[in-house]
């Protein structure tokens, strides 16, 4: 059940659409900057597979310019 955090850079003018789309995903939490375009995405998934899937989904969104992984915690790290 991994937890990962990313910084998302939206395509100019597409920020709101991107936010709406990611918000619609079950296992994502957003943390929005109020004075910059970028925002933080935290994914909390049940399995490594789901984690990969969700990453693919976000990365392939046309409104997304760039997604940077910042930190990740694996199952063991969480339960310890």
């Amino acid at each position: 059940m991994p937890i990962k955090s990313y910084i998302a850079y939206p395509v100019d003018g597409k920020r709101n659409e991107l936010i709406m789309k990611i918000k619609a995903l079950d296992s994502c939490e957003l943390n929005l900057a109020i004075n910059e375009e970028i925002f933080i995405v935290v994914t909390d998934t049940f399995s490594e597979d789901e984690d990969k899937m969700i990453y693919e989904t976000i990365v392939n969104m046309p409104e997304l310019k760039h997604l940077t992984l910042v930190s990740g915690f694996s199952d063991e790290e969480i339960s310890n």
């Binding site: 937890i3 990962k4 955090s5 990313y6 910084i7 939490e29 943390n31 929005l32 900057a33 109020i34 004075n35 910059e36 970028i38 933080i40 935290v42 940077t68 910042v70 930190s71 990740g72 915690f73």
Partner: peptide, 19 residues
């Protein structure tokens, strides 16, 4: 995980404020 992302965002965009 969130605060790690906040920290790196702050280094990229000084003065950034998160909701």
């Amino acid at each position: 995980a969130t605060s790690a992302a906040v920290v790196s965002a702050v280094s990229l965009f000084p003065g950034i404020v998160f909701a």
